[in-house]
Structures are given as structure tokens and as C-alpha cells.
Nucleic acid binder design. Structure first.
Lengths: 171, 171
DNA sequence: TATTGTTATACTCTATAACTATA
DNA sequence: TATAGTTATAGAGTATAACAATA
């Protein structure tokens, strides 16, 4: 047997390894995400995008502009408007117009929103601890490091971009 | 300082570790999934659920019943009907009624569907290899093993279930 | 003219529940 | 009465593009 078939079969095996790894990675992540979505819905009547938006605001107590939220959440402006509308109607966030640029809108958590988010965040963290408890502290650190490597690679392969805002009136 | 504050801060740190790990895991997976979705759409005008359904059929050349597809894909029957309708209209799958139970419907790939799926699967596998190329063969094996541990844990925590089919006429 | 945010629309994916046909 | 699949409906989440107000 020449080296060529070995080389080829090694390549095939490595492809197979990558695919199997991806399927397992996706399955584990999707399971955890599903549990989180269900529990957020069942216990707080909220959704992951709403939670994520509030999490951004909690990290920026002075408020964020709609456009900044759009970029950080990696979704288009229309979506941010919709989610913000819901949260505002429930009194969890407020919109403010900065005097220096009246085109803009700052979104902030209300005191009630902050209280609500902190309650949810604590519970949420408990869920994550529970769901990742299959890993020891050392294993968690290993995975964190390995994912760090992957993250760097992914940034090169196909840089993450929020959906692009087309402007102007051209077709 | 007593041992209690140390214990508490260790617990807090470990919670923080789990949360950071989850955020990174989610970010990496979501990025890869997003790339795959975009490319499936751009190059094959298809979607992940459609791809997944065809993948199931490719593994079961004799066909699968709608209910089996529903279980394997972890979605409700109505969804499977909808996706199958699309694929059937495009000539990629066919429905067959088994003579022994005419309530049932077997879904199979057509020859054209099989050709199309194989083309997509090869390209798809290449994308996965590319996206996971940040990891060496050894690192991939490590992650695979670590995810295996997590998978076992998750099965205990909150067993995965396909959406339950409610039957009968009770409210 | 450019930018910010909003609105209107459409599409995919999902679940629920009533319904039809068969068993 | 139970089961398999379909249909109808609803709702989340997303993107696109036209639009108004402001710069």
C-alpha cells in the first residue's frame, strides 16, 4: 500500500472528526439554550432576546442608543425597536432623547427593570451552574481555554458582523 | 478571616466561571451556526431545518414516517408537514403510503434529492472543517471527550424531549 | 445629503389545537 | 376510542426597505 491511500483516509477521518464534533457541540449548546428559553418563559414570562437586551442595559447604566443596542445584539434596528417597545410598555426600560442630538434615542433600565433583571440574572446564573455542573472546575477551565482558541480562529475565518444598515436611496 | 468568606467567594467565582464559559460557548456555536445558515442560503437556497430533514432521510433509505421525523428532529408534526411539503414540491422527497397502515406516510429522498443532499453534505462538511480548523486534531479530540461528559450530565439534568403530542379531545 | 430611529411588510421556524382518515 | 398526519392559526424572531425627523 502506498502512502496516498493512507493520506486520503486520514483526511477523510479528520473531516469526519470535525463533523462529529460539530454535531455534538451543536447538540449540547442547543439543549442548554432550550432549557434556558423554557425556564425564562415559565418563570419570568420573558425571552432570550429580551433578557439579552436588558443585560446590555445593565452593563451600561447611562443608557445605550438604539443603534448601539442593534450592534451589540447583532440584530437590525427594527428588531430593537420592537423589543424596546415591549419592555417600555411593561415599565422595564425607558427611552430618553439626548438634547444634543435629537435624532437619537437613549434606552435605560428603569429602577423596576433593574430590580427585575437582577432577579432574573441571579436565577439564570444558577441554571447555568447547574447545567454545566457535569464539568469540574478544571474541565471548565480547559473548555474555556479551548474555546478561546476557536474564537480567535473564527474571527479570522469569517469576521462577525451585525447585519449591515443599508442607507441612501439607491436600489 | 474565617473560612466562610473564602468559601463564599470561591462559590461566587465558580458561578462566574460557569457563566463566562456559557457565554463563550454560546458565542462560538452561534457564530458557526450563523455562517452555516448564511452559506446554505447563499449557495443552495436552503435552510438548516430542511438540511436536517434531508440528512435524516439520507440515513434511512427506506424512508421515515412523519412521526419518526418529528421525533428525530425534535419538532412538532405540523412543522414536518410544512417542510416536507416544500421539499416535495421541489422534487427532493416523495411521500408514500404504506399499504399495511394507510394512516401513515413514509417520506423518502428522491434520486434527485439524494444527489442534491450529497452535494450539500460534502460542501457542508468542508465548511465545518474550515470553521473548526482553529483546533488541532488533538484539541478536537479533547473537546469531543469533554462534550461527551457534558452530554451525559445534561441527559440527567433535564432529559431531552421532542415536543409532546397531546391527543384525545379533552381540554 | 447623511444619520437615527420607526414603521410596514414578509418570511422562517416554531407550537397548539381542531380536524380528517384510518385503525 | 386511538393513532397518523394535515390544516389553520398564532407568535417569536429575523431581515429589508421606505419613511420622518433631525443634523
Amino acid at each position: 500500500m502506498s502512502a496516498v491511500p493512507d493520506l486520503e483516509s486520514r483526511v477523510v477521518d479528520e473531516h469526519h472528526q470535525a463533523l462529529k464534533l460539530w454535531l455534538r457541540l451543536l447538540a449540547c449548546t442547543a439543549r442548554i439554550e432550550g432549557v434556558i428559553r423554557n425556564r425564562l418563559r415559565g418563570e419570568f414570562e420573558t425571552t432570550l432576546p429580551r433578557f439579552d437586551l436588558m443585560a446590555q442595559l445593565e452593563r451600561h447604566p447611562d443608557g445605550l442608543a438604539m443603534g448601539e443596542l442593534s450592534q451589540r445584539l447583532m440584530v437590525t434596528g427594527g428588531n430593537v425597536t420592537g423589543i424596546t417597545d415591549q419592555l417600555e410598555a411593561e415599565g422595564l426600560v425607558q427611552r430618553l432623547v439626548p438634547p444634543d442630538d435629537r435624532r437619537s434615542t437613549l434606552v435605560k433600565l428603569t429602577p423596576a427593570g433593574r430590580r427585575q433583571f437582577r432577579k432574573m440574572a441571579t436565577t439564570h446564573e444558577g441554571w447555568i451552574v447547574e447545567l454545566l455542573d457535569g464539568w469540574s472546575v478544571e474541565e471548565k477551565a480547559q473548555v474555556q481555554a479551548l474555546l478561546g482558541i476557536l474564537k480567535l480562529h473564527l474571527a479570522q475565518v469569517d469576521p462577525p458582523t451585525a447585519p449591515v444598515r443599508r442607507r441612501g436611496k439607491r436600489a
